[in-house]
Write a protein that binds this DNA or RNA. Structure first.
Lengths: 391, 391
DNA sequence: GCGTTAACTCAACTTTCTTGAGTGTTCAAG
DNA sequence: CTTGAACACTCAAGAAAGTTGAGTTAACGC
């Protein structure tokens, strides 16, 4: 029996150190400013070990001293915080008609964002554009390539040849080869590839309403509707990287079964309004229709909320998340309206009296959500201990 | 801001060793018999380190030498394998009317199984019964308590106070306090608590059709219908331990929306046949009805397959598993029939041409599946590297 | 036969963590 | 106001575990 062993990392002093460094960074990021003793208690390491690690991190420019706090008796705590310019992450969102890029610093603050129209969706064009934009961004922000920790790429899923291939949002030519590897070879950087929903979820976890949450679901309004799943502080990818393809499951609207995406997505609202002779091309159009209480839009919103209620029941019962977040390329007012109208299923494991978070929340909205999420993938990696990471 | 830091383990030499030991055990279990060099390559450790660890494990009685294999040139490999009597795991399944127990060895072979009727479903009765049965099993199998690695407990979910509370299968009195802690204090052993579906999934992974799979879903026919989810070699538990409550989601049968569990479960088939005046109390009744091609049973099977097809679409698109396994307390013939009749959704990320496993497979069936799964929880723990385990 | 290949061992070395003693600061009780 | 307990942190010695590189043994193939 020649069964291949899945490579998994054993622990040696070097990797242990790297693991502990990320653990310390993560702890500091989590609370903003902490002392060494507290980190030691939380990590199960000795204060001495934490002290040594912090002195390392200070040397690497990833931390700054953040004043002393006198907490009751004893010597006041020397606190530390993440140094914002200690590192940068590049985020890229690839769409058929344009490439969006963002450069964010170590705490997740965007330094620069760009939208570059594509004259062709060819693979080579995309690779060249991304590469050019990366150098452009570094030059403009006066950041050395050494300070760049990696690039996150958002691409429309599903990846590989599946039963959903043929969907509108797809890019040609990416079915063969591993996109992460292709980008890594082009950019000479660590690269992380995810779909828009997963990336948006990470963005929300880094600097949004999901901050500090380790188990949540994120419904992302893009072209269609995607589901980003964070379980145990990690993105749930599935065996082939296509988990969260929620758009094509059947839900109920007015007693009929429809594909979720056909009731709840940007394409859906555009199509619905187009049938009424209303052309909607951007978010502003939607906002103005909404503020004028357009009947057709309100009708669509009701159906979307119904569909969402079905989806919510499925998500809650299958994942038992801390909360479900709604976000993406839709105006705030629209998302808020949908959330207010979505019936929270009673027969759900999430219908518990001792909840700490609402069952449905609005996340960051707007066109850049996924792009910032792409950058967040890199930051997440930097703050996640690596030993025993199976992939 | 007083934000509590989530305890997560830092790496020190001791924990690193324990991590590496489990890594080595896992590798050996995975392929059955391996040499040191191969493990070293797979784990990223030096052969020397692996050698030292193996000599430790031999001393602890967890491994045995397993002959030499000459693999081409070079010195023949000294192979090692898990020593079956190197340790034991106790599995318990608690139901309202009876407690099932199993004692399995380190490779998962059952040494002894029992069914103990309960005269009361009171918490104290259950605890006492389990404790007595544990000692009973150890005595009978002539195994010292020191060789016992832990106990796995299967209890009907959902845990805690949820919107599904009030379901038939529940046990009274367990909503307060952590069941795992309660059992651990009673049995003085490491304890792992899961629902039936998750446990059954682990059983299948240890010694069944899911052997070697790291991402799969397991649909478990119990009283109702449960979903066990294994993602990245770990059970997906959800934020509150209630992930996989698939029984209450809405699916389509003959164009109508019904709760999945009402179309596909033991209670469902019993109720359906009872309406026709047929009383079914055990699996043998079902088998004989099936072999006589009972019209009502066949009708029910068709509806069950329809419902399952909807569920399959949801599971595949949300989790993107390697395969979906059907198993539990139903006869093989029934499961096989359902599998044969279940339409595999076309619009699914799992509908890919390059599949290595069927989309729907039959797992171990029979009443003991979940009980053996309970024991498998302990074994899984023993073979899973621990550093950075977040829970 | 003899050189090549490969698994494994031995002994010295390196990294990292831990331990325990010691220092400095703050608060509270006498 | 003094004294002692509490607490964060540092220093130096020691321990645990992995790595490295040289050496040994055995099988294969020309």
């Amino acid at each position: 029996m020649v069964s291949t062993l899945k490579p998994q990392l054993g622990a040696n002093p070097e990797r242990a150190r790297s693991h502990n460094k990320q653990l310390v960074l993560r702890a500091i990021r989590h609370v903003g400013a902490v002392g060494r003793a507290e980190i030691a208690r939380a990590s199960g390491l000795s204060t001495q070990a934490v002290s040594n690690i912090i002195s390392d991190l200070l040397g690497e420019g990833l931390l700054i001293e953040q004043g002393v706090r006198s907490a009751g008796r004893g010597l006041p705590v020397q606190q530390y915080a993440i140094k914002p310019d200690g590192g940068y992450a590049f985020g890229v969102e690839v769409r058929p008609t344009a490439v969006f890029t963002a450069l964010v610093d170590l705490v997740g603050t965007p330094v620069l964002t760009r939208r570059i129209p594509l004259h062709s969706a060819a693979k080579s064009t995309i690779l060249e554009t991304v590469k050019a934009q990366l150098h452009c961004a570094l030059t403009e922000a006066k950041i050395s390539k050494g300070a760049l920790m990696g690039a996150g790429i958002v691409m429309p899923g599903p990846f590989g040849d599946t039963g959903l291939t043929g969907t509108a949002s797809e890019l040609p030519g990416w079915n063969i080869g591993d996109p992460a590897e292709i980008f890594a070879n082009t950019l000479h950087l660590p690269v992380f590839v995810e779909n828009d929903a997963n990336a948006a979820a990470m963005a929300e976890r880094m600097n949004g309403v999901a901050r500090g949450l380790d188990d949540f679901a994120y419904l992302y309004f893009g072209q269609g509707l995607g589901l980003g799943l964070v379980q145990n502080a990690q993105i749930l990818q599935g065996a082939f990287g296509n988990a969260g393809e929620i758009g094509h499951i059947q839900v109920f609207v007015d007693g009929h079964a429809v594909e979720l995406e056909s009731a709840t997505s940007r394409l859906s609202v555009q199509a619905c309004l187009a049938r009424e002779g209303l052309e909607v091309t951007n978010m502003e159009d939607l906002i103005s229709l909404y503020s004028s209480a357009n009947r057709h839009l309100l009708l669509w919103l009701d159906k979307a909320a119904q569909a969402l209620s079905s989806a919510l029941s499925i998500i809650e019962n299958l994942f038992d998340p801390q909360t479900v977040i709604l976000g993406g390329a839709m105006p705030d007012v629209i998302l808020d309206h949908i959330i207010a109208r979505t019936a929270l299923p009673e027969r759900s494991v999430s219908n518990r009296p001792d909840r700490a978070h609402p069952r449905l929340m609005r996340g960051t909205s707007g066109r850049m959500t996924a792009t910032l999420g792409a950058a967040a993938l890199v930051l997440h990696q930097a703050f996640t201990p690596t030993i025993a990471e199976a992939r």
